[in-house]
Amino acid sequence: MTAFAVESCGLTKRFGRQVAVNAVDLAVPRGAVYGFLGPNGSGKTTTIRMLLGLIRPTSGGHALLGERMPGGAATVLPRVGALVEGPGFHPYLSGMDNLRRLDAADRTARAATADARIRAALDRVGLGAAAGKRFRAYSLGMRQRLALAAAMLASRDLLILDEPTNGLDPQGTREVRSLIGALAAEGATVLLSTHLLSEVEQVCSHVGVMHQGNLVAQSTLEDLRAEAAPRARVRTDRPADAARVLRELGLTEVTHDGDSATGVLGPVAPEKAVATLVHDGVPVSGFAVVAADLEEQFVALTGEGFDVSG
């Protein structure tokens, strides 16, 4: 058994001349909640489709739960729950009947336990009361919930969820977050594609960032945060003097405004900065070390701007 639930090596997809995914080496450790981040059009969904065997990589390969894909699909995919690019169900069947159909298609599923498992999955996503309604009458949030229920029809070792909170109200979003936490606590690995940074900060242990088809960063959330250079922020009524002291201490990118001065700490210990400021007669009314937030790092990795990656 390998240590990785998802492992890819040089996974590449070209559509004509356009490279949608370029030599991606994913490594999702077992038990992780892996936030797969990236702007729209960065290649997340194409990567997920390749992982699930829906589209064929132009080059490279991957394994799920230690089984080579696509050869191992028949044995490994029953242990993988997936939500790909939004819900997809027969509009004129009820939510319940849609799940029955998916369960009937699964060779490894026991027919005798089908109804109990379907009920449990529907209850888990809060759709129990609407189980008999036709799918076409569902709201966007209900549809999303049904797709999540489908991903949880059987006990899964890996969940690949493409933007699972899309279309959910704030309460639904919270529920899905706690659901993901519960699944992870049960021992499942979760690969969660999203562009919501708050989601990543709240539930993920690992992060991978896609940009224009490349995986530009991949690490634990802690390591990614540690990489972000912490800044010292001094509150004082003499910000210009504080900025001078910080500069002399060796802090970089020092700036000041009306009532504070900040700079990147680098190797300088925060205690030393405070001591020096006080020693030099700068009155310190507040001192804080702030890490760059994920959003700033994300923008640093993927660039500013609203343009969808081409």
Partner: peptide, 14 residues
Amino acid sequence: NVGTLRYLLTVPVH
């Protein structure tokens, strides 16, 4: 067209 194909294939149905 209704998006069920991708879900059937990931069930997986060969």
